[in-house]
């Protein structure tokens, strides 16, 4: 019989203590979306759930022009999508949150859980393939990675991560004895792996407390696009976030990130370089997009993603300027 235990943690410290005491059987739960999915698929079987929902310190959206944005780990995707400060200042993030999952899921899914979710790879999501503890069926990876895919074609599932990376977000975690640390999101996300309990730098006994985004300059332009087969509710073929800082009509700095094309969202530095110091028009955007897909290593089934990515980069750069 199931012996699953449920504990409502009252504080971050209590949650950390519970996780430390039993690092293997205990799982922290925020919105519970991915956890329930993994339990139902037989991929995880926790003996204890530490519920974080009652910890007020993990809630709240704070924005200040000078210091930027702070998202409590329990902030839902719906809250992010609907927050007027975020829509105004971090539109790429608001768009990414608005296009994740379904309205029902966005009402319950948290940003913390979204970043910590496991890949949606259809091999990963079936317990049959976990017995082998390895990814199989690389040739079936039509939705998988077209870069950095020699070890895995699995891609990180978070689409808000694509926008967060473009804004230079950091993840804040709390560990034992009140020890807190901040990790750049680019370091936090790790390539998905069947053999690890998570695809991030979070330790077994740590709790993700909040996400921070640096302040946004006045001359910033941003856009986000998630390319799907269907508009209703779909996983991405790729998604792209573009954040540009302008000076005198020219690009002073650029951050461009693409998701679902590599095991972790990919910073497109070649595209960024192609933009810096230039005034953006169709041909500049096209050049930047082309630069990004050079060196792609698609599989036979996912080579179609390469021209799509190129198109989406070009369009999203232009959308940022529109």
């Amino acid at each position: 019989m199931s012996t699953l235990q449920w504990i409502d943690a009252k504080s971050v410290d209590e949650a950390v203590a519970l996780l430390s005491a039993d690092a293997h059987g205990t799982i922290a739960k925020a919105g519970g979306m991915d956890l329930l999915d993994l339990i139902k698929e037989g991929i995880v079987a926790p003996t204890r759930i530490v519920n974080l929902q009652h910890i007020d310190a993990l809630r709240g959206v704070q924005f200040a022009q000078a210091t930027g944005l702070r998202l409590g780990a329990l902030t839902t995707l719906a809250e992010i999508a609907g927050n007027s400060s975020i829509r105004e200042r971090y539109p790429a993030l608001a768009e990414a949150a608005a296009h994740a999952a379904t309205p029902q899921i966005r009402n319950a899914a948290t940003i913390g859980g979204n970043l910590l979710q496991r890949p949606r790879c259809w091999y990963f999501r079936n317990e049959l393939f976990h017995a082998a503890r390895q990814e199989v069926g690389r040739e079936q990876a039509q939705y998988g990675a077209i870069f950095d895919n020699s070890k895995t074609t699995m891609v990180h599932a978070s689409t808000p991560a694509t926008a967060l990376l473009a804004y230079g977000a950091s993840v804040h975690v709390a560990g034992k004895s009140g020890k807190a640390r901040a990790i750049a999101l680019s370091d936090f996300l790790l390539p998905p792996d069947f053999n690890r309990p998570r695809d991030t730098a979070l330790a077994n006994d740590e709790v993700l407390t909040h996400v921070s985004l640096p302040a946004i300059g006045a001359n910033t332009r941003a856009a986000y696009h998630k390319q799907t087969e269907r508009d209703s509710y779909d996983w991405p073929i790729c998604d792209v976030a573009v954040v540009l800082t302008l000076a005198n009509g020219k690009v002073e700095a650029a951050k461009i990130v693409a998701g679902a094309v590599a095991p972790v969202p990919r910073r497109l530095t070649a595209s960024e370089k192609a933009l810096v110091g230039r005034e953006i028009d169709e041909s500049v955007a096209a050049e930047a997009a082309r630069a990004a897909v050079r060196g792609a290593t698609p599989t036979e089934k996912n080579s179609y993603k390469v021209p799509i990515l190129e198109t989406v980069i070009r369009r999203t750069i232009l959308a940022a300027m529109a």
Partner: peptide, 18 residues
């Protein structure tokens, strides 16, 4: 021989916006 997309999200069907 396992159906990889034996679900509602990856077995893709017209939704409201399509």
């Amino acid at each position: 021989g396992l159906q990889l997309n034996a679900n509602i999200d990856q077995y893709k069907i017209v939704g409201s916006r399509e």
